[in-house]
Simulated assay, not measured.
Amino acid sequence: MTESFYDRVGGHATFVALVDRFYAGVAQDPPLRALYPEEDLGPAAERLRLFLEQYWGGPKTYSETRGHPRLRLRHGPYAVTPTQRDRWLHHMLAAVASLDLTAAEEAELRDYLVRAAQFMVNTFDDPEV
């Protein structure tokens, strides 16, 4: 049996660092921060971490506690525009770059995140930000 991406990159600690660094950027980006309705970003950070850990071969806690990810459905109430996608990717890819990953691991993670961000775009009407 081959080792999962989750295990190869350092498991839980790596995904905690990734998500913490990402949300530090989100907290300083008012137009992107406005997409997060909760006062505290902690619950959103936990959900994202659990999702990413599960996706990359870690614990199945996300599905056990929240059910199927249904990402587009869960994000449907929010206007995810190309501009918001780009803002999200800016912070996420900066967080990825801050990790101590091999070039191949970083490329694999970046590729997924870019594709996932594009998939989440649900409107092309960019309100003024």
Rank of each mutant, 00 (worst) to 15 (best):
L73Y: 09
R49I: 00
T61F: 06
Q84E: 12
A116H: 06
E106W: 02
T2P: 15
E64H: 10
R87Y: 10
D125L: 13
E106Q: 05
D100E: 15
L35M: 14
L48S: 07
L113N: 03
F15Q: 11
E38H: 09
A116S: 14
L50M: 13
R47E: 07
P37E: 09
A79S: 10
L113A: 13
W88C: 06
Y23C: 06
L35Q: 12
E39T: 12
L48T: 00
L35S: 04
V9K: 02
L93N: 14
V129S: 10
W56E: 11
R49C: 07
L73H: 13
F5Y: 14
A103L: 12
F15M: 12
S4G: 08
D40H: 14
T102Y: 08
R74G: 07
P69D: 05
Y62F: 14
P30T: 10
M120F: 05
A13C: 10
L93A: 02
A94C: 05
Q54R: 07
E3P: 03
L73R: 14
V129W: 05
P69C: 05
G67R: 05
A34Q: 09
L35A: 08
V16I: 11
P37N: 04
G25W: 07
R74N: 11
A97E: 07
D111Y: 04
V26W: 08
L101T: 02
E53L: 12
Y112Q: 03
T65G: 00
R66L: 05
G25L: 04
R72C: 10
E46A: 13
